[in-house]
């Protein structure tokens, strides 16, 4: 019914503004953004390389690289979901005082997280270079595909949850707790192989666990999932995304009245 002909520019300007505000347009600002995942990595790497050493039980010599990659990927997921969930409420003026399609606000917030993730990749590349380790071409392609998958999950989550969060303001508290649980339910600090086989299978039902486990494996040891596993994963992803779009259509209609 209503046309707003510059969606792409709108999304881009909103994302750019968020980015500028977050890092004040400075290099130092970006360092702060990196600090959180890097500090976490440094601590966990110290704890699990020196104090509890999982290398003896199914771990391998690339633990450091795996841990770093996993933490940065999970950080993308957690920051992205938190930001996209609260995007509509944080930008309530754009919802209640003017009509722009609400999804542009959600997409802008996910783009911002993606931008930070893209910058964090530089750190991953630097570490791989430091260790003089070159992953296979297929592994890099899979890594890119999985990165895009995380983005799709973040976006789907935002489309579903941002209109709901406007109504139910404690959702963000619940989600923080869930994120902590997910952090440990995902093979980030430990290799999946440490666990009994049936638990491994249960954990892999979690898309983030699937993504992070097989990214770690394929990048360092060249071990890939079965092709049916990949197909199932992407089928679930597409279906989930479709459902979230439907939910967005239903819940975003009256969002201006709820804020």
């Amino acid at each position: 019914m209503r046309k707003h002909e510059n969606y792409r520019e709108l999304v881009w300007v909103l994302a750019k503004t968020d980015f500028k505000l977050r890092y004040h347009g400075s290099v130092l600002g970006y360092v702060w953004a990196l600090l959180k995942p890097l500090l976490m990595f440094a601590i966990l790497n110290f704890v699990f390389s020196s104090i509890f050493n999982p290398r003896g039980s199914g771990g391998n010599e690339y633990y450091t690289l795996q841990l770093l990659t996993a933490i940065i990927m999970f950080n993308f997921f957690s920051e992205g979901t938190m930001a996209s969930m609260s995007s509509l409420l944080n930008k309530s003026q754009l919802v209640t005082k003017i009509y722009i399609p609400r999804w542009t606000i959600i997409v802008a917030s996910t783009l911002n997280s993606a931008l930070v993730y893209a910058m964090n990749l530089v750190v991953i590349i630097a570490f791989f270079a430091w260790y003089q380790f070159l992953p296979s071409f297929a592994a890099v392609v899979m890594f890119i595909l999985f990165s895009l998958s995380i983005y799709a999950i973040v976006l789907a989550f935002g489309l579903l949850m941002a209109p709901l969060y406007v109504r139910l303001r404690d959702l963000i508290l619940v989600w923080e707790v869930v994120l902590t649980i997910l952090f440990y339910a995902t093979p980030i600090i430990y290799p999946l192989q440490m666990l009994p086989l049936y638990i491994q299978q249960v954990l892999l039902a979690n898309p983030m666990a699937f993504i992070i486990h097989f990214t770690k494996e394929s990048l360092t040891t060249g071990h890939f999932a079965e092709s049916w596993q990949y197909s199932a994963f992407f089928a679930v992803l597409v279906a989930g995304f479709g459902l979230s779009v439907l939910a967005y259509r239903k819940f975003s209609v009256n969002v201006a009245e709820e804020i």
């Binding site: 707003h4 300007v13 503004t17 505000l21 003026q93 754009l94 005082k97 003017i98």
Partner: peptide, 28 residues
Amino acid sequence: LELGIGFNPELSGRDNIYLNATVLGMTQ
């Protein structure tokens, strides 16, 4: 309905013009 939708005090006047005008539907 309201002036200066999306205005942010931390941004420069220039950035705010671009932000506000884009929200109002102008192209770059």
